[in-house]
Amino acid sequence: KELVLVLYDYQEKSPRELTVKKGDILTLLNSTNKDWWKIEVNGRQGFVPAAYLKKL
């Protein structure tokens, strides 16, 4: 499993997105899109802007 660090808080703006908090370490599911990465948070899957995340 690949992990990502959340660099900035992000509030979901659609049902396909997820809310994340700065400092969270989460599972990366897909990073093929350069702008939006798919991650998992508490069993939910969704997208967060790639600029808000850093691969560990």
Rank of each mutant, 00 (worst) to 15 (best):
K1C: 10
K1L: 14
K1V: 15
K1T: 14
K1M: 14
K1R: 11
K1G: 15
E2L: 13
L3Q: 12
L3R: 10
V4M: 02
V4S: 01
V4H: 01
V4N: 00
V4L: 04
V4F: 03
L5V: 12
V6Y: 00
V6W: 01
V6R: 00
L7T: 05
L7N: 02
Y8T: 09
Y8G: 07
Y8P: 00
D9M: 03
D9E: 05
Y10E: 00
Y10K: 01
Y10D: 00
Q11C: 10
Q11K: 14
Q11E: 13
K13R: 13
K13S: 11
K13E: 08
K13G: 08
K13Q: 14
S14V: 05
P15G: 12
P15M: 09
R16L: 14
R16S: 12
R16I: 14
E17N: 08
L18V: 13
L18Y: 03
L18H: 04
L18R: 04
K21D: 04
K22D: 02
K22G: 06
G23Y: 04
D24I: 04
D24W: 15
D24A: 12
I25S: 02
I25M: 06
L26E: 07
L26N: 05
L26R: 07
T27V: 14
L28P: 00
L29Y: 05
L29C: 07
S31E: 14
S31M: 09
S31R: 08
S31I: 06
S31D: 14
S31N: 08
T32I: 09
T32C: 11
N33I: 06
N33E: 09
N33S: 12
N33P: 04
K34S: 12
K34G: 12
D35W: 15
D35M: 14
W36G: 03
W37A: 02
W37L: 02
I39W: 00
I39F: 02
I39V: 14
E40N: 04
E40Q: 09
E40S: 08
N42W: 07
N42M: 10
N42G: 14
G43Q: 07
R44I: 11
R44T: 09
R44G: 04
R44K: 13
Q45W: 12
Q45F: 09
Q45S: 14
Q45R: 12
G46T: 03
G46E: 03
G46Y: 06
F47A: 03
F47T: 03
F47H: 06
F47M: 09
F47D: 04
F47L: 09
V48W: 01
P49C: 03
P49E: 02
P49Q: 03
P49I: 02
A50G: 05
A50L: 02
A50I: 04
A51K: 12
A51E: 10
A51V: 13
A51M: 12
L53W: 01
L53N: 00
K54W: 12
K54I: 13
K54S: 11
K55T: 07
L56D: 03
L56W: 10
L56H: 05
L56F: 10
